[in-house]
Structures are given as C-alpha cells and as structure tokens.
C-alpha cells in the first residue's frame, strides 16, 4: 500500500504551462498519474497535452475536477501565493517542487498550514525544494525518474533529490520494492518533516521498514530518531550525508549548514544509533543495510512466532494432562 498518494489521487498542476511545469507534467502523465487539471492564471479554457483542462484559479479547478492534490512548479517569487491558493482550494496534499523560496515566505506558509490543520482542515505540504512523492506503480507527483522505482513494502524519507534516487536504485537492484518515497526537501522550513512522514509510515500496515536519508543542518533527524525510539517497532534504516562537510558553509541546500557547532553528521548518526536505527556508514551500502535489517527482522519475527507456538503446545499439553 502507500501513504498520502495512490491510484485514487486526482492531481492538479499549478504552473502547468511554464517550461518546468509542462516538461514534468508530461512525465507525470506518462507514469500513469491521474492528472485532472492544470492552473495558470490567464490561460483558463485551454487544454494541456490535448487532454488536461487548464483553469485560471485553483478553486475553479477543484470545483470542476474534484482534484485532491496539487503540485507546484511556479517560480520562487510567486510560490507563497501559489501555495496559499492551493491550500485555500481544499486539496489535501500540496507538493512544492520550487527551489529558492525566501525563508520569510515559508514561515508564513508553515504557520498558515499548521493553523488550518488545527482548525480541522486536513492539508499537508511536501517540500519545497524537493523531488516530490511517489507511490510506485500508482502515482508519481514530482520530478523523480519513475523507472528506478518498484512497488513494494519499504518506505523512504529523504532531504535530498539525487541521493534519494541513488538509494531507491540500490533497493530496486536488490529486489526490494517501495511503498511510498517522499523527498521532504532541503530547505530550513519544510511542510512535512522526517517525524511527520515517519508517523505515517508507522501507521501504514503495508510498510514493513522505513529508510531515512538525512544530511547536516538543523535537528530534524534527531527529533525523528527520538520518535522512532519511543514509537516505531518496524526496522528503520538511516544514512546521514555530510560527514566531511566543513562548519559554517552552506552545502548546496539552503538548510544544509552546520551552525554554531550544531547540526553535524556525527551528532545525527549518534542520535540515530541510540534510537536503534540501522545506520549505513557508506552511501553505497544503503540498500544492503536495508536488506540485512529486513532479514534480521524476519528471523526475529520467526523466533517470536515459534516461541508463541511452543507456548501454545505447552499449554495444550498441560490441558491434556489435567
């Protein structure tokens, strides 16, 4: 199964007629995602790719097509407005691909969405500055290459783009399929955190294990590790990028910076290990670490099962004796 997106997802694309938006929307449609609407102010009434109706506003698009998710490809200067419009239209999942949104704008978005959720409106944003989310074989919302994925039972959460693809490809090569993969984004403020995604995977009966791929900066990985320690019985596998990153320098992602000695890879790896998470030391071994964790879990489960059966037999014997 999956979290957040599946066969039933009806996708709306904001910025569908832009160069990024139109290129990736074609790829999204080819993967099999049900794209029901596009939104570009001023281009309402036209058709994209000969089949997707384009609307002037999100509200119109949702009303006409019952879209329940949106993906945003608009430039950073207009992203705040686009996200708020998506939230206002009532979609439940908003995937913001846009890179380079000012932090001041994201603070407004984050707090606005939090308040909506507190008031009972269900809305979740993924991103910004992220590759998106995919439930292999069912629904791809984002810019990731679809063909490297394989349907299955391992969930994946990552702050990165290509490093996520690397991990997915390693899993697929070992025959390990994925339930859903989420790129949560590399910015300091993001809609869905490691912990948020981990909670969803933990509740998903068809996800057997979760891979978390973190990097230097902030303490979201540590917070998630704490959640895992307290609540997650499924095997969790982790990798942290940036052990060799120098302090005080931004490593590509706006959020990837060791500030005031905080946010180092060493601290994060320790937190993960302390929480019982299997940590891959090399980025080349993420797939292998998952495989081992799954096997270990299987033998553990088997042992538990045979223990249970042995106890049952014992009980039966006792009953027979009496």
């Amino acid at each position: 199964m999956s979290i957040l997106v599946n066969k039933k997802t009806r996708l709306m694309v904001q910025g569908i007629t832009g160069s990024e938006g139109s290129f990736h929307t074609r790829q999204i449609i080819e993967y099999g995602t049900n794209v029901v609407a596009g939104v570009t102010p001023g281009k309402g009434g036209s058709l994209f790719y000969d089949k997707v109706p384009v609307f002037n506003t999100c509200a119109e698009a949702v009303k006409a097509t019952k879209a329940n998710a949106s993906v945003i490809f608009v430039p950073p200067a207009f992203a705040l407005d686009a996200i708020l419009e998506a939230a206002d239209s009532g979609v439940e999942v908003i995937v913001t691909i846009t890179e380079g949104i000012p932090t001041r704008d994201m603070i407004i978005v984050k707090n606005y969405l939090d308040d909506l959720n507190k008031s009972g409106v269900k809305v979740r944003m993924i991103g910004p500055n992220c590759p998106g989310i995919i439930t292999p074989g069912e629904c791809k919302i984002g810019i990731m290459p679809g063909f490297i994925h394989k349907p299955g039972r391992v969930g994946l959460i990552s702050r990165s783009g290509t490093l996520t693809y690397e991990a997915v490809a390693q899993l697929t090569a070992l025959g390990i399929g994925q339930s859903t993969c989420i790129g949560i984004g590399g910015d300091p403020i993001i809609g869905t955190t490691f912990t948020d995604a981990m909670k969803l995977y933990n509740e998903d009966k068809k996800t057997d294990a979760v891979v978390m791929i973190g990097e230097i900066g902030g303490n979201a990985e540590e917070e998630c590790a704490e959640y895992v320690r307290k609540n997650v019985k499924k095997p969790v596998i982790g990798f942290i990028a940036g052990r060799t990153a120098p302090p005080g320098r931004r490593m590509g992602h706006a959020g990837a910076i060791i500030a005031g000695g905080k946010g180092t890879a060493a601290e994060k790896i320790k937190a993960l290990k302390d929480a019982g998470i299997y940590v891959a030391d090399s980025p080349a071994d993420i797939g292998l670490t998952v495989k081992k964790a799954l096997e270990k879990n299987k033998t553990k489960k088997k042992a538990k099962k045979s223990e249970k059966e042995a106890k049952k037999k014992e009980k039966k014997k006792k009953v027979q004796r009496t």
Partner: peptide
C-alpha cells in the same frame, strides 16, 4: 544534486 554531492565527499 547537493545530497549526492555530500555523499560523494563522504565516500
């Protein structure tokens, strides 16, 4: 990609 770049430095 930034994440893969950091991972490459690490490897």
């Amino acid at each position: 990609g930034a994440g893969l770049a950091m991972a490459t430095m690490d490897i």
